[in-house]
């Protein structure tokens, strides 16, 4: 019983760190640009797919392919932002919801045309290496995922807190117009934010893809989870997102094990509704 719970917690942390990594980008894009990025799941998918291609077709090493993938998807994100978001700068916020929605439909089917509908095996060299910690069984890939997730989020935290550009980003979350008047280049910050968001999503996709295979519709569920985590975590709060992601991952693992598999996914939304009803500013958010 306890062994099972511990094992589930370990797995939940691994998956949860990826929820958090997905959600960070989603949160930054929402907070800084006021855009609900509906194509975030597709950037995650592109991460897995491009990493697969780099390894299979170009024979690249997994650890080299990872950053290259992130960079490639950042560029795709940049191009996408120019087409679907920039022209709608002064328009109501729901317009970008719709254009990114359209973008997600396009990317998903383009991916299906390029890579086919069947899941592809993204073989990380760490995937099949077992690690046994007492009664807990993991693979090196899972540990690698957890560590990279937490590390990237930590770096982002430092970047936003300490770096000048990061501070400009925070200023934009507070008050866009004031920030513009202070001479902050809001258009540049927007581009950076979106590219950063796309890159982190792609990173998550390339990491988790090694566990669960990669396929064109793989981004659906992570998008839904990122939604939940962003609302749970509250806006403009990197630590909040990390903890919410981890909590969600663990809660789902335990629920799947002790209640039923089918309702594990519903758990995230039950938590979400609870948060919305009782603490609408998010579990870790300050009152807006």
């Amino acid at each position: 019983m306890w062994v099972l719970a511990l094992q589930q917690v370990a797995n939940g942390l691994v998956v949860g760190s990826m929820y958090a990594l997905m959600s960070i980008g989603m949160m930054l894009i929402l907070g800084i640009m006021s855009v609900i990025n509906m194509s975030h799941g597709e950037f995650y998918m592109l991460g897995g797919m491009i990493c697969f291609t780099l390894m299979e077709k170009l024979g690249m090493n997994y650890f080299v392919a990872l950053p290259v993938t992130a960079l490639a998807v950042a560029l795709i994100g940049l191009a996408a932002q120019q087409v679907t978001i920039r022209p709608l700068d002064r328009r109501p916020w729901f317009t970008t919801f719709l254009t990114t929605f359209g973008l997600s439909m396009i990317l998903r089917d383009v991916a299906q045309i390029i890579w086919g509908a069947d899941p592809l095996e993204l073989s990380s060299p760490l995937a099949r290496k077992k690690v046994v910690l007492g009664d807990i069984f993991l693979t090196q890939q899972r540990i690698f995922i957890l560590l990279s997730g937490v590390t990237i989020i930590g770096l982002l935290y430092l970047f936003i807190r300490k770096n000048r550009v990061g501070m400009a980003m925070r200023a934009l979350v507070r008050d866009r117009d004031a920030a513009a008047m202070m001479g902050i280049n809001t258009a540049a910050i927007n581009r950076l934010t979106f590219a950063l968001g796309a890159a982190t999503a792609a990173f998550a996709g390339a990491l988790l893809g090694a566990l669960f295979n990669v396929y064109p519709t793989m981004g659906e569920l992570p998008l839904v989870k990122a939604f939940a985590v962003v609302i749970m975590g509250g806006m403009g709060n990197v630590q909040g997102i990390l903890f919410s992601g981890l909590i969600l991952g663990v809660a789902e693992s335990l629920a799947a094990s002790f209640i039923s598999l089918g309702y594990a996914d519903a758990i995230s939304f039950a938590i979400l509704i609870g948060v919305l009803l009782f603490k609408p500013q998010g579990l870790f958010g300050k009152k807006a």
């Binding site: 679907t84 719709l98 254009t99 929605f101 359209g102 973008l103 439909m105 396009i106 089917d109």
Partner: peptide, 11 residues
């Protein structure tokens, strides 16, 4: 190309 066309039209 169905979804691609629908998505493009939406945008």
């Amino acid at each position: 190309y169905r979804n691609i066309l629908t998505g493009t039209l939406l945008i």
